[in-house]
Write a protein that binds this DNA or RNA. Structure first.
Lengths: 347, 347
DNA sequence: TTGTAAGCGTTATCAA
DNA sequence: TTGATAACGCTTACAA
């Protein structure tokens, strides 16, 4: 790989002159500028960004730490962050902690395990002098990512920073639960069952809150028997189906598409027609939701928007001298209702 | 971020002594070693890998260039590469070219567009002195990635290097087409239709080759009317269904799960029962294949295996002094037949 | 056993 | 308008 030094030799000027030209300094004669730039283009010279980083304080590199790249929610977020950064001429560097890959579900209540991977990752990014760090969680939790005296801008995506010093960008689960329940009510349903996610989960809790709010607005009494807890997996949708249906609900709100598929399984087995005899909605808008029959009405999580918003905020912090102490907001990105054929108008 | 210099100051030794200790050099007294290591641990010192790279020739960093991170095939491959590298104490750096995101399908026959992103990406990785580059394609093509006189090890994954100087790791499409056709034949099918991918595509061509080979072995005449071309998308599965069924086939091999879903759509509409009146197989083993009804028999692409194999070969090249000129192989990773309920025994 | 000094690719300061 | 020189964080001969 060609270096500044070699270019300087070829052009018979000093290294600093080449450096000045490349950095757009004004004090260079037009003639040498042309000569140097030509060689730069011919040789396809690329600066070593990390060598620049050693010298300058700003690197224009943003570190992205993801809990696990192999989650359906992570890649679109990361892709959007990268797209936005590219547009504004920032580079990114990705650290994939692979937490689920390493420990399945056993790490996020285990600060020890968690920090044994997170801390070195942060240190690594700091040591290579990234300008800021975006932390991308795998699911919504309150997360202790960055210390309060963190020197560079940090932001938490798809999770909530336990410290108010850092911005968080999350989906608006409460509104999501509210919207989808309102929709069911608008379709004439008043006995609406829920197959929720795991009980202690933030997504679960907030969506239930939204569900309750919608019921309340319509003066429908909240019946806790209508709410069952699954574990986000398909079998749990199947498992909760029977007893929930016995309650006489006319519609069921599954908190993800996968559990809705499990519910479909049960209903198919019993010959109960989705979208006819009973209505079902999901959450996530995964590919499966439009492939199962009937197409599943669901709430799309706008992952690209989340990522873009995070990148936008990060770069804004970077460009407008960042004040570490300021208290930051929680940005909520709304979900988008995708209407398919799984809900029937109830008379 | 703490540096070698600061550690040296704290311990009141020279920078080189600290460096020697961290690099396991033998010529240090046990006493100072202890003293320094303690400070290193306390401060959580992390070396700047890129500063190391500037100085040393080997960085233990592997560059990964992906055509687009937002493809279902890319993330598992990348995850597996990262996992393997982590195990052997290599770091990775990811460049996401986002080619589909930028240009949809219009880039891969346009060398101009393609190189306008690829070349800078390679240059960037070279400038930061990665030890080797893994190129991860979005679909199987012959790709001109690296120049023949490339100085560091390169490897092409999920695509085939046009130069024999670079190893390629791909799925065994021919065997995949063969295996799944053999399976259908073993289930008593002799008139087997195909909804293929796009005609010029390598996956398509090789799977058809495997299909033909299987037919040939069983002395079944190859009938070109049984082979229809789709575009990998769901509607094309639907579109090709009618005329193909008119040919009187008893089973249909769709070259991906998504087109199989399109075929399911058609069959459902016509009241033809999959797994009863007709048999269907797919390819990819995406999540949808086990969510649609009946569960789709399909060929799993072992993406993690592909990634792991690629990483293994890359690191092997790195550790056993790489000889650039040697001609390299094409490694083929078999697919895995996943049997569900979409194929019926034909009497 | 330890430290000095040079060098990796780059930028910044300052003198010529 | 240009170029020495020092510095960034690190490794490595080589000298002490």
């Amino acid at each position: 790989m060609i270096t500044l030094k070699e270019i300087a030799q070829i052009c018979d000027v000093s290294i600093s002159t080449v450096s000045n030209i490349l950095n757009g300094k004004p004090n260079v004669s037009e003639e040498t500028r042309q000569r140097v730039l030509e060689v730069v283009n011919q040789t396809g010279y690329k600066p070593n960004y990390f060598a620049q980083g050693i010298r300058k304080q700003k690197t224009k590199i943003i570190g992205i730490i993801v809990e696990d790249l192999n989650l359906f929610s992570t890649t679109p977020i990361v892709g959007a962050i990268m797209a936005y950064c590219e547009e504004l001429d920032y580079r990114t560097i990705l650290i994939n902690m692979r937490l689920y890959d390493k420990w399945q579900d056993t790490w996020y209540n285990d600060e020890q395990k968690f920090n044994s991977v997170l801390q070195p990752s942060i240190k690594e990014l700091l040591s290579i002098k990234v300008d800021g760090i975006v932390y991308v969680a795998g699911h919504c939790r309150v997360i202790n990512c960055f210390p309060d005296d963190f020197k560079i801008p940090g932001i938490v995506v798809y999770g909530i920073s336990n410290s108010p010093k850092f911005t968080s960008v999350v989906i608006d689960d409460k509104k999501g639960g509210y919207d989808i329940t309102k929709y069911l009510i608008s379709m004439g349903h008043r006995k609406i069952g829920v197959i929720a996610g795991t009980p202690d989960n933030l997504h679960t809790m907030r969506r239930i809150l939204g569900y309750q709010k919608a019921l309340f607005e319509e003066e429908i009494l909240y019946n806790p028997d209508f709410v069952r807890y699954g574990d986000w997996m398909r079998p749990s949708g199947y498992r909760e189906a029977e007893s929930l249906i016995k309650e006489g609900v006319s519609a069921i709100f599954c908190m993800n598409d996968l559990m809705a598929v499990g519910l479909y399984d049960y209903l198919y087995e019993k010959g109960i027609q989705v979208g006819e005899d009973i209505s079902v909605v999901g959450y996530d808008n995964k590919e499966i939701s439009e492939c199962i029959r009937p197409g599943l009405t669901t709430n799309e999580i706008q992952l690209e928007k989340i990522g873009q918003e995070a990148a936008k905020i990060m770069i804004k912090m970077l460009e407008e001298d960042y004040v570490a102490s300021k208290s930051q907001e929680i940005i909520k990105i709304p979900c988008r209702l995708i209407i398919r054929e799984s809900v029937k108008k109830n008379q």
